[in-house]
Amino acid sequence: MDPKLLRVAQSGSVNALYSLLQKDPCILQNVDVLPFIHTPLHEASSTGKIDLAMELMILKPSFAKKLNEDGLTPLHLAVENHQAELALELVKFDPSLVRIRGRGGMTPLHLVAKEGDVELLTEFILVCPESITDATLNGETALHIAVISDRYEELKVLRGWMQRMRKGDASTTEIQVLNKRDRKGNTALHLAAYNNNHQAVKQLLKCMSLNRNIQNKRGMTALDALRANGPQMNTETESIIKTSGGNIALREWHVIGVACQMEHGTLF
């Protein structure tokens, strides 16, 4: 980025931006021709310069969908740097920004589920409900990521939204979100069970359309995954999975073998 433009972006001054444009009318266009670049909107978004960011959205809306050299959009950076107010303004201007896939296929919604922000997560889903079906290159939805990141409150928001979705389109909720399997065949329930996470398992089991017995690529159900924790397994979690209809698919000796693999870091 031109050093003069960078200084303007860091200052957050709209007046300074227009002064620069008077001297060099093509300066923003020169940035836009590059396929991957840290634009002034990226800089303003990462530092919370709301007035300048929104002015740039009007002048160059294409900046909002451009990836920088790290594979991130301005909205990704706003989320990553906890600039929630600015992030909300960006998605009000263009709700589709919630679904732009950056590095690893991660969308801003995925990033919110990872970083944690209940209000922002709720707003993202409200302005762009379809984003809940998006998956990363590893096949992980926001539901998977909330479980992996131990974001319990965000998981509750996602579960509540899926219940609302089911009233309109059950197949979308069940296949594309709730029972979606990642590249290793794991559903969110598998991951919660692997992590011995009682709260997450309990939340997921509240979804009536959740398939308790999907097998991952190792032929393991969620109950198998839980039992792979060996002596550290939460017996309460085992009880609620079994009570809700969860079964094992593997013989006990195999599960013990998997537990050993987990201990030595070879399972994942």
Score class of each variant (00 low, 15 high):
D2G: 06
K4Q: 13
L6H: 10
R7G: 05
V8K: 05
Q10N: 12
G12L: 00
S13N: 05
V14E: 11
V14C: 13
Y18Q: 11
L20Q: 06
K23V: 01
P25K: 13
C26L: 13
V31Q: 14
D32R: 15
P35N: 09
F36G: 03
L41G: 00
E43C: 01
A44D: 00
S45Y: 00
S45F: 00
S45T: 01
S45N: 02
G48R: 06
G48P: 03
L52A: 08
L52E: 01
M54A: 11
I58W: 09
I58D: 14
L59E: 15
P61I: 14
P61A: 13
A64S: 15
K65I: 13
E69C: 07
D70Q: 15
L72I: 06
H76P: 02
H76W: 04
A78E: 02
E80F: 01
A87T: 02
L88W: 06
E89K: 12
S96D: 11
V98N: 02
V98T: 07
I100Y: 02
I100L: 10
R101M: 11
R101K: 15
G102C: 05
R103S: 11
M106F: 06
M106H: 02
T107Y: 02
T107A: 04
L109F: 08
L111H: 07
L111Q: 07
A113Q: 01
K114S: 07
E115C: 12
D117Y: 04
L120R: 03
T122A: 13
P129T: 04
P129H: 12
I132F: 01
N138E: 11
N138Q: 14
N138S: 14
N138R: 12
G139L: 05
G139T: 08
G139D: 06
G139C: 07
H144K: 13
I145D: 03
I148Q: 06
S149Q: 08
L158I: 15
R164E: 15
M165Q: 10
R166D: 10
R166P: 00
R166A: 10
G168P: 01
D169I: 00
T173G: 04
I175L: 02
Q176R: 06
Q176I: 00
K180I: 00
K180Q: 10
R183C: 09
G185A: 06
L189N: 03
L189D: 00
H190A: 07
H190K: 13
H190R: 11
L191G: 02
N196F: 05
N197W: 00
A200W: 01
A200N: 08
K202H: 13
C207H: 10
S209Y: 08
N211F: 06
R212D: 00
R212A: 12
R218D: 07
R218E: 09
M220A: 14
L223I: 10
L223Q: 07
A225T: 14
G230V: 09
G230D: 07
Q232E: 14
M233S: 13
E236V: 01
T237D: 10
I241R: 09
S244K: 15
I248G: 11
I248C: 15
R251A: 10
V255P: 05
I256E: 14
V258G: 06
C260N: 12
F268M: 12
